[in-house]
Each structure stands twice: as structure tokens, then as C-alpha cells.
Design a protein around this nucleic acid. Sequence first.
DNA 1: CCCTCGACTGTTATAAGATAACAGGGGTGT
DNA 2: ACACCCCTGTTATCTTATAACAGTCGAGGG
Lengths: 137, 137
Amino acid sequence: MPTRGEEMQEAVLLILRSNGGAMSAYDLLGELRKECPKMGPPTVYRALASLVDRKLVHRLETLNAFVACRHERHHDQPYETTVLSVCDDCGAVDERVAPGVTAALSSVTDSSGFAASRQVVELRGVCAECNGAADPS
Amino acid sequence: MPTRGEEMQEAVLLILRSNGGAMSAYDLLGELRKECPKMGPPTVYRALASLVDRKLVHRLETLNAFVACRHERHHDQPYETTVLSVCDDCGAVDERVAPGVTAALSSVTDSSGFAASRQVVELRGVCAECNGAADPS
DNA sequence: CCCTCGACTGTTATAAGATAACAGGGGTGT
DNA sequence: ACACCCCTGTTATCTTATAACAGTCGAGGG
């Protein structure tokens, strides 16, 4: 039997997926309040925390926003750094796994003795589509 | 002749340097208000924005905080990604330039056509010192 | 069977981070 | 000298996030 909290997580994930792009916690709250007007921020933040833990959602630190993960079940594989690219023009978020980055970061932490528990790699810029449209050189 | 804004930047940089670690904008504001009680947040944020532009200060996205850059004049050199490691135990911030990470990220953006204007690479975890003290295996 | 306890969820209130928008001031060009 | 514009200061407000408490429900013991 699903608990109330799990239902919340599913609802949040559904909204994020149908939206496709990045949403702030309060964007999500707005959507959820259509069904459930009294919902407060902590409910949304708790659902998001679980989803991020389960790696079904990524948090975009540079935007204070959240996006549904597109790579199913990459928690089974050996850990690979995820690179999130955010287009400042159209807002699209591209997510890709980059073994080369993982290796490069490992060599940094190995030499410094730092034990990393979390890696944040985000790029801001202009995506291929927007760049192609704006600058057809 | 230095403008008022430049003086502000110097004051902020001085505080950040003497503090050594990461400070939030409001931490800085608190310090500055000792001299200038009426100062508002925008003044601090403006100074910080300039300092970040000039690469004299790094913004820590995962902490919403700021830290003085320790690598002098690395804006002259060809661009290298800066990796910021934050110790969740003692709060120390380690900053290092990582050509390998730069290269790995380039290969990601090259293949996707993304034109990155800003790279954020942050690690959270436990630094060598804290790790050594807590886990002397 | 009913009570108690504890974990989870809901709700209110508030803290923390950031910026919009307007006001003032001082130098510059005419 | 005056008009203009840019830079700075200030107020107010907005967004993001969490602390703290209240209610609910099920498990386990008496």
C-alpha cells in the first residue's frame, strides 16, 4: 500500500515529466494546489528531497529548480558524473553521463584526499539549436 | 579616482579574505553594517556580482555563499575549469584548477554542440583533514 | 480491546536569499 | 548654469527554503 508521501512523489514526478523542463519548487506547488489548495511548501520539498535521493529528479543548483531525470535506472550502474547543461536562451536542460568527467574529478580528489559524496556539474550557455538559429555562420 | 562602488568591492573582498572561508551575502552585509548601518542587500549583491565577474570571488552554488579566490590572476591564462570542494564537516573550501576536467567537459560540449559560457563544478564531501581525524584507518 | 508510542504527514509561521523599482547625487557636455 | 545620464543608495517586495508544531494512523503491549 502506497503511503501518502509516495503518492506525492509520483504526483510531483508526473508534473515534472509532463512539463519536460525545469520547474521551481513553487511552480510545482502551484500545480499541485490546483488539486489540493491547502498544500504547503514543506510537502513539495519533502517529495523533491526523496525524488532527488532516488535520482529520479535532478536539482539544478544554478537555477534553484528541478528537472525529471531522463536516464532510467542509472543508479544501478557504477557511479558516473551527470553533466547538466542549461540553455539560457530557451531553458532546455540537457543531461548526460560523462565518464571522462568522472575520471578527471577522481584524479582531483585522489590528489587532494577529498572524499566527495556529491558532485555538481552544471553548464550554462546556449544549446545547439538556439545557437544554430541565432548564429547561422 | 576610485568610485564608491570600487571601494565597496574592496571592502567586501577584504572581509572575505580575512574570513578565509565561505560567507553568505547577508553575513557580509552584517559585517559591513558595523561601519555603515543603513546599507542594503543590493549594495552587497552588486559588489559581489562585480567581484565574481572579475573572478576575484567565487560563488558557491550549493551553499548560496561566496569565497575569495586564492589563485591570483588566473584570468590571464587560457580558461581552466575551477573545481570547488566544500567540506561538510569543517566548512573549508578548496579551490583547484583542473585541466583534465576542462578537457572532459569540452568533449561533452563538443559532441552536443552546447556553447558553454559558464561552468559550475562543485564537490561536497569531507576534506582530507576531517576524514583523517574521524577515520584513522 | 484499548491505550500508548512513534513515525509520517499537514500546516503555520518565519527565516534566508535575491532583486525590482524608485530616489538621490554628482560629474559632464553644452 | 542647466539638463542629462550614469552610478549608488534605499525601500519594499519577491522567491526559495525550513523550523516547529499539530494531527493522524498503524503497530505492539497490556
